[in-house]
Computed example of a mutant assay.
Amino acid sequence: MDGPEDGAAVSAAGFGVKGPRGWVFRGVDIDAAPGALVAVEGPSGSGRTCLVLALTGRMRPAEGTATVAGLRLPKQMSAVRRVSALAHVPGVTDLDPALTVAEHIRERALLQRRFDGSLRALLRPRSVRRAEARQRIDTALAAAGLDLDTLPKGPRTAVRDLERVEALRLSLALALVGRPRLIAVDDADLKLADAEQTEIWKQLRAVAAAGTTVVAVCSQAPDEADVVVSTAPARPTAVTTTPTDKETADALAETGRA
């Protein structure tokens, strides 16, 4: 991972997203330095996932202002998407249970090479490109804390056979392959034992310390968080409804017209 200077500063004032059934969240304020660990806490249905989708340029805000790495939302949504990544977001980054860990990694590496490779990189010898891709993957796996040798069948382990914490680490590693400046992780503590939650937050803390700003959704923010953003219903600007899959899909489709 690159140094902390490569993380994305995140700021927002009066930030809100509105869906067909009303406000999903509104009035959110954030001030996070590059390389910060930001915890978005609140109960399920309080707009947590939509907030991280909006901050990464995947969902169009309806009010307020926000900047990510100096890029303004919603005006520069496509640019924000290029410097950010998502991990463990249901309906967006779902892992295929029938594929193996190795197949997921190979697919991600191919996509990275296809959409992120410069002409100069493509002209380098194939052996050099393969070595660089391998190094990038190894770095991402290490940053996510996923040791393939500890899995039941090593890299050939099917996703359906992974423990929940292992699947979360895999999703995190796949997102880190692109070396984003900001990474958003949904449901960072969902259905994890206390010890597993501690492990994951320690890993996310390490990712942030290495230079990637992390925004993680949780039910309760840990002590490790540098910034805590609450979407709890007790806040006057929060709502308690969860958008339907169709509403989320419609909002995500809007990113294509940003």
Rank of each mutant, 00 (worst) to 15 (best):
D189N: 11
V177I: 15
T198A: 15
R124I: 00
L176H: 08
A193D: 15
P155Y: 07
A232M: 04
A175D: 09
L162N: 14
L174R: 04
V217A: 11
V207P: 02
L174P: 05
I183S: 07
C218D: 02
L141W: 08
I200C: 13
R124P: 00
L190T: 09
D189G: 06
L204E: 01
A206Q: 14
V229K: 00
V214L: 01
P222I: 07
V229N: 01
L123Y: 00
G117R: 06
L123P: 00
L141N: 13
E132H: 09
L192P: 10
R114P: 00
R181W: 12
R169Q: 15
A234R: 08
A121Y: 09
A144T: 09
V159D: 11
A144K: 11
P233M: 06
D187T: 06
R156H: 14
R126H: 09
L172K: 03
A216S: 08
W201R: 05
A133D: 14
G145V: 02
L182T: 01
V185Y: 09
I200M: 15
D138P: 06
A167D: 08
A184V: 07
A140H: 03
A158N: 10
S230Y: 05
D226N: 13
L122E: 05
R164E: 14
A144S: 12
L204V: 02
Q135E: 13
V207R: 00
R126D: 07
A225M: 09
A131F: 01
V214S: 01
I137S: 04
A142I: 10
D223K: 12
D138Y: 11
Q197G: 14
A158Q: 15
E224W: 02
S171M: 12
A216C: 09
V128M: 12
V214I: 05
R179K: 13
A216Y: 05
L192D: 11
L172A: 09
L192H: 09
P125V: 00
D194P: 08
Q135G: 12
L168A: 13
A234F: 01
A158R: 15
R113V: 02
G145S: 05
R160T: 08
D194S: 12
V128C: 09
D186G: 11
Q197Y: 01
T150P: 03
R179T: 10
V165G: 06
P152D: 08
G211D: 04
P155V: 00
R134F: 03
G145H: 03
V159A: 14
L162A: 12
E132C: 07
V215A: 11
V177E: 05
T213K: 10
T198S: 14
R134D: 07
A193I: 01
S118L: 06
E224N: 05
E163P: 01
R160C: 07
E163I: 00
E166W: 05
R205D: 11
V229F: 02
K202Q: 14
L168Q: 15
S230E: 04
T212F: 11
S219M: 07
